[in-house]
Design a protein around this nucleic acid. Structure first.
Length: 271
DNA sequence: CGCTGACCCTGACGGC
DNA sequence: TGCCGTCAGGGTCAGC
């Protein structure tokens, strides 16, 4: 479900309600996610204060006094801050009880996500091999140009490769390529410096606009307060196959790239 | 090392 | 109404 803008939206929606709050206890209802929720999580978190909520790539990081809780949402995960405890549903896997009575709840029907604990996030296996953040200055035309040399993969797969740049999933890869007039299957190594320049600009633009709009709710994405994102109606290509291009009116086409649906405009995105 | 495809899991939806 | 195939916003891993 969530790509960078959605995780960022969850982070912002939760921060005000949980930063500075103390964790009273933690209950795990189901351990088996992508990796098992650590058995010792409750004893590690109980009594700790939440110092800060951060995002790295599509990971949400809850920094506490003694360590960091790492949360990933996979395809279908979400978190919500409940005003008070209610009976957990089928796919609610974890409750974090705060001292003020609120409950931070993790839900993930497909269980592709994970909830882990570390005292050294900077060297954690899941975090240390990640590429640059797309909204930071380090992600620029020369970076993308360098990292695309000798790469035989389609440019779309390069954008979705978290060793290069993080946070871009299927929706925003589709959108950025449309905005940059690039055909999704064109080889990464064939990008010119000018194309890298434009592509970087378009990636930053679409991610920022999505964040401003609280993310894309295509099916069921909700932020920490249960609110839907507003970016879906602003999408140019994702989910619009068979519909007219918003720019040139040609019918948008769909193909599969790297096992994922890819929608593009045959006129605006020349081969 | 780079790349491809299978796979983890559940639910929604469309066709019959 | 119900069954079945297909698809879904992510990431890892084996195998070539």
């Amino acid at each position: 479900m969530p790509e960078l803008p959605e995780v960022e939206t969850i982070k912002r929606s939760l921060a005000a309600g949980i930063v500075g709050k103390t964790i009273k206890k933690v209950i795990t209802y189901r351990h088996k996610l992508r990796w098992a929720i650590p058995q010792e999580l409750s004893q590690m978190l109980a009594g700790q204060a939440i110092v800060e909520v951060m995002r790295r790539a599509k990971y949400l990081l809850f920094k506490t006094t003694k360590g960091t809780l790492i949360v990933h949402f996979g395809m279908s995960g979400s978190m919500s801050l409940l005003a008070q405890y209610t009976l957990p549903g089928k796919h609610d896997h974890l409750d974090i009880f705060l001292a003020d009575g609120k409950v931070l709840r993790y839900n993930d029907p497909r269980r592709f996500g994970c909830v882990l604990w570390t005292q050294h996030p900077e060297t954690h296996e899941l975090l240390q091999h990640l590429g640059v953040e797309p909204l930071e200055k380090k992600f620029n035309a020369s970076y993308l140009y360098q990292h695309s040399r000798n790469r035989k993969v389609a440019v779309k797969l390069l954008l979705m490769d978290s060793h290069t740049v993080v946070g871009i999933g299927n929706i925003y890869a589709n959108e950025a390529l449309f905005l940059a007039h690039l055909y999704p299957l064109c080889k990464a190594a064939s990008l010119t410096k000018a194309e890298c320049e434009l592509l970087v600009k378009c990636i930053k633009k679409v991610l920022k606009q999505a964040i401003v709009n609280n993310g894309t709710t295509f099916r069921d994405f909700k932020d920490g307060n249960g609110r839907r994102g507003r970016f879906a109606e602003l999408l140019y290509v994702y989910g619009r196959e068979g519909l007219p291009c918003k720019i040139c009116s040609n019918v948008l086409r769909k193909m599969i790239v790297g096992n994922r649906s890819t929608v593009y405009c045959p006129h605006c995105q020349k081969i």
